[in-house]
Nucleic acid binder design. Structure first.
Lengths: 335, 335
DNA sequence: CTGAAAGCGCTTACAG
DNA sequence: CTGAAAGCGCTTACAG
């Protein structure tokens, strides 16, 4: 089956290609094409099964109506939910989404960014990782619109949509202390990432505000690349070395799940004294035997939606917007 | 910053654009460009920060090096893991992935397929839903390579990668019966989908093979669009109406989660008698208070990888392959 | 070995 | 109102 082009329609109808283009792009009226002719073209297009070639259109107009999305790991439920929300909002606005996972590897980020630029994406939505500052700066130079979502850099000018990591974490710990819990350990991941730094700082400052001194031995960090093993080691060290440990607060939902698994294997369940708390939620958590006492629920849907709206705004704008959107963390507790 | 094109490099070096193109596409040797010239071009390209315009390339060559992926719901962990595996394998082969969710709505499938065709994807990987036969047939007519993954149609010629739904389900029920459990209910979703039909048939035939008569009242179906409420109703009906019910077998991982939640709320825990079983797994099922007794674990990684390999093979092939790949379901039980 | 030229399918100023 | 033509950036036969 031969591909039908604008030329075929024009020839069959004995009109110019320009006319067909106008009609197919809804500019018939604007270009004062007669209603009769408009209908004729539309009917013929349908009859022949015409489909626009968006590659050609993109080359000609310089606009691809595509957004490139880089997440840390699409198989992680936080990011897949974020991707869903971004996909829906983008489609609603006539944009497609190309995606890829960086796996917290800045080299992969940079490869993805390059591939997406070669594809002429109109803008990028990026969950940035350590080292991405360099690539982000290149986007500035090239004047390619982008939005950072979930991840950001404190000292970098960028359109940003994030949750309030600092205040959210502070509030979680505050609530725990309000429940009379004082010996609280904290497990982080890739702690050098700014959003994780903020969560740690929230933990520290909430302790301080309540007259509890910070102990470095209560804080552990695991690495993305070795998350399962690292979490096991971290939890075991906390349980074995910290006297009177009451609760372990995990820096994201995945750590909470992994950590809880370790606790269960160690037979250190709620009953035996060690509670958990989580920045980040997951549908499963309520089904667990050891439900985290206090959970921070990220507004994933709104984050994705706002990220798309912001990137579209930036795409349309001729000046750099530098907007920062910070969404509050929702907090729930059991019992 | 002006976009650098092949023309800029050619002019600066005083050579033809063809030469630059050859070098940038690794055809220097083939086209007998001198090593010296090759180096000169490469250095200049780097110096100017040249990036190929893949839109132009795609228009000219008719190949976009892009695969379109349609899943039922990217926020579902089964599909997000599948997407990850597809993404990795595609990137490894120099292909990008554009994706979208159909939400089990054939109209959305068709829109996505159209958008992807307009974008000149080289091939499609589709988790098909009810009604997609029509669009799939159009792909045949248009000779656009595609692979069905996870989902398929019995009476449709298509390259397919699926898990063995029938045998997997049969084996799960067989194992349950082997544990002395006889009163087994089954909860399905969108049961008219072929892969779900196969799971139901496996359940039925395993009962029959063990001399247990099939009771329609033990089987429930929920709809994708109303999954939470439907599951609640289904589980409640089973618990309230079926005497001596021993176990509820859920047709996928998500149903298992939702159903277990309902059971918990009804205070019908394992202890009180009703067990669960699941076609489909999730990393954190082991953390549940009521771990499913027997779980079927889909080989998601291999499915994605094989789907990509098959679509690439079909893209390169001039004839329709009609390959069917059926992967076995892995089964685990607790205790 | 190298250069000039056509053409992928589209949009858009321009001329009439 | 309509048509002829240029050009987006690239690749590739073709001529030399």
């Amino acid at each position: 089956m031969k591909k039908i082009t604008i030329k075929d329609i024009a020839e069959e109808l004995g009109v110019s290609r320009a006319l067909v283009s106008f009609v197919m792009n809804g500019k018939a009226e604007e270009m004062r094409v007669s209603r009769v002719m408009e209908e004729k073209v539309k009917r013929k297009a349908k009859e022949l099964g015409y489909m626009a070639n968006r590659t050609a259109k993109a080359l000609r107009t310089g606009k691809s109506n595509t957004i490139g999305l880089i997440v840390a790991d699409i198989s992680n439920s936080f990011f897949s939910k974020l991707a869903k929300s971004i996909e829906i909002e983008a489609m609603k606005n006539g944009y497609d989404v190309i995606f890829g996972s960086s796996d917290e590897d800045s080299l992969k980020s940079s490869n993805l960014i390059n591939v997406f630029i070669e594809r002429n994406v109109d803008g990028l939505i990026i969950c940035a990782t350590e080292g991405d500052q360099e690539w982000v700066n290149k986007l500035h130079e090239r004047k390619i619109p982008f939005v950072l979502v979930d991840r950001f850099f404190h000292d970098l000018e960028a359109n940003t949509v994030v949750v309030d990591n600092y205040m959210g974490s502070y509030e979680i710990v505050q609530r725990l202390i309000g429940k009379g819990i004082k010996k609280i350990a904290y497990v982080s991941i890739n702690e050098w990432l700014p959003h994780m730094k903020d969560r740690l700082l929230g933990y520290k400052n909430a302790l301080k505000a309540n007259g509890i001194s910070y102990e470095a031995s209560l804080v552990k960090n695991v690495s993305f690349d070795n998350i399962v093993e690292d979490t096991e080691v971290a939890v075991k060290e906390l349980i074995n070395n910290i006297k009177d440990l009451e609760l372990i607060y995990f820096g994201n939902y995945f750590l909470t799940l992994l950590g809880t698994k370790v606790l269960r294997e160690m037979n250190k369940k709620n009953l035996s004294g060690v509670l958990t708390s989580s920045f980040g939620n997951h549908l499963f958590m309520e089904l667990m035997e050891d439900i985290p006492l206090v959970r921070g629920i990220q507004p994933i849907g709104p984050m994705g939606k706002q990220a798309v709206q912001l990137i579209l705004k930036q795409i349309k704008s001729s000046v750099f917007l530098n907007e920062k959107i910070i969404l509050p963390l929702d907090i729930v507790e059991i019992g």
